[in-house]
């Protein structure tokens, strides 16, 4: 499989504040990638490096085979970007912005744009500055679809969107990638949306912690077990196996990639009493918090 994005030994720091130390991952063609991480772990930094707006301190970041900060115009033409906050030229109208972008792309498909626009029932002379967040997201998505790019990088597409627009957005993305030759790299702060969309997930955490995995595999192997917390119960600490520990009321939750029995054995070995030990089903959001911690 062809690598659409290839990040090798990426190192980035702001002065003495190190964001990444040796980040590695790849994104293959035809996949939908979700990037998950809490605020402040450098998600935006990574997106900016991928989009070519930040020069990494060292290491390589190849997008469609070229250095991301030095992409050729042709390659940029194959990439659709959705900037955080659905950035657009607010001084333009619906028709003007389409006319503007169409001048830059050879196989521009204006029908896809107007299909989305028509759903809103707005006049084509409606100014973007007078639109709601959701309406603006339609315009921006319409523009990206009309561009028909090989790779889409969508930075927090769900920001400011109501449930309806979010769903619509997802439907269109799903439709877009179904032929298998398009690749999507997406971040969202609404984790549950990604659950229905993405194939692969990259978790990034503090200090450059990174986990790249298939969503299915992750959901299948990452587990939450709960047991009773009482007086005198020893609490387990985090280690290679126990990724996280939470105490909710009189229950203790541990998160791990181990299956039930080995997990319990591990806990016992550490001297933890596991009364009423049971597995708890998780959504992606639960799992995300379980893996990355609440705060």
């Amino acid at each position: 499989m062809e690598n659409i994005i290839e990040v090798r030994k990426l190192y980035h720091s702001y002065g003495k504040h190190v964001i990444y130390e040796g980040l590695n991952f790849t994104v293959e063609r035809g996949r939908i990638f979700g990037l998950l991480g809490k605020n402040g772990v450098g998600k935006t930094t990574l997106i900016n490096i991928l989009m070519g707006f930040l020069h990494p301190t060292s290491g390589r970041c190849l997008v469609l085979g070229e250095d991301s900060h030095n992409l050729s115009p042709e390659t940029r033409g194959k990439i659709g970007l959705l900037h955080e906050g659905h950035l657009a030229y607010e001084f333009m109208t619906i028709a003007q912005i389409e006319r503007y972008y169409s001048g830059y792309y050879h196989d521009w498909n204006r029908d896809w744009y107007y299909e989305l626009i028509d759903m809103m029932g707005l006049s084509y002379n409606h100014k973007i500055s007078k639109m709601s967040c959701g309406q603006r997201s339609q315009v921006v998505l319409g523009l990206i679809l009309a561009q028909n790019p090989e790779l889409m990088i969508l930075d927090d597409y769900s920001m400011g969107l109501g449930a309806g627009y979010r769903r619509l957005f997802l439907d269109y993305l799903t439709e877009y990638v179904k032929n298998g030759d398009k690749t999507v790299f997406v971040t969202s702060h609404i984790v549950q949306d990604l659950e229905k969309l993405v194939d692969d997930i990259i978790f990034i955490g503090k200090g450059g912690y990174l986990l790249q995995t298939l969503l299915i595999e992750f959901m299948d192997s990452f587990k939450q077990y709960r047991f009773k917390n009482g007086k005198g119960v020893k609490l387990p600490g985090k280690d290679d196996i126990i990724k996280n520990v939470e105490i909710i009321g009189d229950k203790v939750s541990v998160y791990t990639f181990e299956s039930k029995e080995p997990a319990r054995e591990h806990l016992m070995k550490k001297g933890v009493e596991t009364v009423d030990f049971e597995e708890v089903p998780m959504t992606l959001e639960d799992a995300f918090i379980g893996l990355m911690g609440r705060y």
Binding site: G52, F53, R76, I79, L81, H83, L87, F91, Y104
Partner: peptide, 18 residues
């Protein structure tokens, strides 16, 4: 000023143009 507020210039810089 409109180009640098919210870093809108990013949109121009991503266009398939030098």
């Amino acid at each position: 000023i409109p180009e640098i507020t919210k870093s809108r210039l990013r949109m121009s810089l991503h266009l398939p143009v030098n």
